[in-house]
Write a protein that binds this DNA or RNA. Sequence first.
RNA 1: CGGGGCAUGGCGCAGUCUGGUAGCGCACCUGGUUUGGGACCAGGGGGUCGUAAGUUCGAAUCUUACUGCCCCGACCA
Length: 441
Amino acid sequence: MRLTDYFLPTLRENPKEAEIVSHTLMLRAGMVRQETAGIYSWLPLGFNVMKKIEQIVREEQNRAGFVEILMPTIQPADLWKSSGRYEDYGKEMLRIRDRHDREMLYGPTNEEMITEISKMGVRSYRDLPTRLYHIQWKFRDEVRPRFGVMRGREFLMKDAYSIDIDKEAARRSYYRQFIAYLRTFERMGLKAIPMAADSGPIGGDMSHEFVILADTGESAVFCDRDLVDMPVPADDIGYDDDLEAVAAAWTSKYAATDEKHDEAKFVADVPEERRVSARGIEVGHIFYFGTKYSDAMGASVQNADGKATPFEMGSYGIGVSRLVAGIIEANHDEAGIIWPESVAPFHVGLINLKVGDSETDEACNAFYQNLENAGVDVLYDDTDERAGGKFKNMDLIGLPWQLIVGPRGIKSGEVEVKNRASGERFNLSPDAALNMLTSRK
RNA sequence: CGGGGCAUGGCGCAGUCUGGUAGCGCACCUGGUUUGGGACCAGGGGGUCGUAAGUUCGAAUCUUACUGCCCCGACCA
């Protein structure tokens, strides 16, 4: 992509409404624009990153044996009346009426709908397990939206739902998601720690929040250092294996958010040198809720004995749009964002230091073509900005690699490759630079 | 939902107390000099001063109501 063809409205100064660093940087890097409190337009750079995150989530859900569907944003109120939640949900639910004065709502979640869909499709225990997910916009009318897309009212979320015949089977579905989450966040360059969470109406041990560590995190978290460096299962993990045993490496170690933190247990269970007190951001939540909705909505199947058995259900959420901000919170410096390669909007920022200088233009065009041909996403700054501005901008938007080409270097047969994360610079011949950047892909 | 603050050009702000017909920095446009980490000079364009009503010869400024946004708290992926 040539910058002259792109839409990248970067800001030089910090917008005053932004309180946390990810919000400031997303506004400054031209990733989003606020339309009203907690509701944002996604501009090209932000949208690009969000799609990359979404795709990683999708791939790992598929790998874990969940099947993608798409449910609507607008739901009929009757559906929610059938579970009793229409009255319970309160003002966070955005309630609307259509032209026939029918009560509708902008969905804050989809348990009721998935239960109805499953009732229609599941007739026998032989049809189970049913494991579905979708990635869709949701709306929760937060009293006080803040922190940009970190806590907006409209947000993109992956939510998955499992339906099993009994609790043992439900456990297996639950741990599929547990492992999928470890892999998903790892692929985005995040350290996500599963932490025991309140498990809603059922209780028990089947609810975990996945929290990423970031200095600017919203809540205090406490965990065993072993969890931070625990190697995540590889992509050949067998999802039909006993994943609860695999997950035990995580669930057996101490980890808690401040609400659930038990200092005495922390001190007793974790040797002092391994105690981590940090800040965290919740990016995922998985839980088993048993028959809460299936009971209320009469969703059952016949078991092998011919007896009606209510669905055993779990739901599993990942805040996709929130992750965009979460990743920035975990990956930035004074100059701007530092994208992990897997979610970077482009891999290489090609900087032409002197547009109009024929040798420099020629060299840049060649790089641009060759990198594109090699399948490397390039953002080519072909504007006639001054060099200083280009450097600042490129650091701000945080592409992993910068390829800096100017007349001075061309004369001595060199270009500069800069790694955004480490700050390392390499003066290389054009061929060596091209080789370095294409071999990474 | 309680408490507080703010609303003036694309962004950040001054002007409001003490009413007199709108200004600064950045950004933008033109010309020139520059050019490897946010240059300089000269010229220029752009604002129903959140909305509505009121007071006044005259309102960004005073009064009232409303709306929006931000912050703290309670709440939350």
